[in-house]
């Protein structure tokens, strides 16, 4: 595949994302306007009367017709202004940039955990299809996805923090003894390592452990299932049989040939799993006081915080579009068929 073709592919993907983003802007605008709360009443405070609420409604521009509000919203958006969140009183942009790394760090570690467990399980199951190992793997990962995350989270806190005391207090990204490391990437563990502050890195990692496991358990199933299916299909393929017939060692066949081919559909699944995990994040963040964007979105939704909900949804959409792009690119890089053409 030529360089030009590849960049054209990327360009085409970008172009495809545009109508989606337009759709998202419209849907999120309409959705937030349909929320039953009244931000003006919220803004006006606990002892405000109807007149002062109306006054605030006018000053927030909420008395204008919807299309006018939409145009104003899009204009602000073009200027990069996402508005001010009423629930935290901060600019939405600022909130999202400080909270997004927290969510990404959590989801990332959870996915790593999940991959580390699920892929071996999937491979194990695929090498012994329909044996008791296969059934056990299936039961384990299915049990993981069958548990509501908030339940798992609370149970883990109860056992590992409350009863055993092994885990640090579930109070967010760092306990109160440590200060957040100087911001480089926004990922505390990485930032702390960059600052050569092992103590803080350790503490940040310890805080991450339980929520990441909670989330990771939930994402085991799709990864394991896809690994198993892909491996099964590949292992039955002609070229594996040939390789085996040629007397190549089992390990080499499995990991060099089979896995390399099986990893493609797994990577595609990862995109889906990421979306899935970010959604589930909302509940996990709530349980672990994690200052991510999921918990922020829940709060915002509950108080009808238009700006925050819209900002959140837009960020998510962009994130997904980017993610899918990255997956597409990785796909082209990893796919041996495409590689051969080069």
């Amino acid at each position: 595949m030529t360089h030009l073709a590849r960049s054209r592919l990327v360009g085409w993907r970008l172009l495809q994302a545009i109508p989606v983003i337009v759709g998202i802007i419209i849907v999120s605008f309409l959705l937030t306007r349909a929320l039953p709360g009244d931000p003006a009443a919220y803004f006006a405070g606990p002892a405000a009367d109807a007149a002062s609420i109306e006054q605030i409604r006018v000053s927030m521009g909420l008395d204008r017709p919807l299309p006018v509000q939409f145009v104003a919203y899009v204009q602000d958006l073009v200027r990069g202004d996402l508005g001010i969140s009423i629930s935290t009183g901060q600019p939405v942009m600022h909130e999202l940039t400080t909270r997004l790394p927290a969510s990404l760090e959590l989801t990332g570690v959870a996915l790593l955990f999940s991959i580390a467990i699920a892929m071996p399980l999937g491979i194990l199951a695929a090498t012994r299809p329909n044996s008791w190992v296969d059934h056990l793997c299936r039961a384990v990962v299915t049990a993981g996805v069958s548990l509501p995350t908030f339940f798992t989270g609370l149970a883990l806190i109860y056992v590992f923090y409350y009863l055993l005391g092994w885990s640090p207090s579930p109070m967010g990204r760092l306990d109160f003894l440590h200060l957040s490391p100087p911001k480089v990437t926004g990922f505390y563990v990485i930032d702390a390592l960059l600052a050569r502050d092992l103590e803080t890195a350790r503490a940040a990692l310890a805080q991450l452990l339980l929520p990441a496991i909670t989330l990771g358990l939930f994402t085991l199933a799709p990864i394991a299932r896809m690994t198993r299916a892909a491996m099964l299909q590949i292992l039955e393929g002609e070229f594996i049989r040939t390789a085996r017939a040629a007397g190549l060692p089992r390990r080499q066949v499995l990991f060099t040939y089979a896995l390399r081919n099986a990893i493609l559909p797994v990577i595609t699944t990862l995109g889906m799993v990421f979306s899935f995990a970010l959604g589930a994040n909302v509940l996990v963040e709530k349980v672990f006081s994690w200052p991510g964007i999921g918990s922020y979105a829940v709060e915002a939704l509950v108080v009808s915080d238009y700006a925050a909900v819209q900002g959140f949804v837009l960020t998510m959409a962009l994130l997904f579009v980017t993610l899918n792009l990255i997956i597409d690119v990785i796909y082209t890089l990893v796919d041996p068929r495409l590689g051969l053409e080069e």
Partner: peptide
């Protein structure tokens, strides 16, 4: 510190 969950 803000800890939303009462159990926590």
């Amino acid at each position: 510190r803000e800890v939303p969950s009462a159990s926590t």
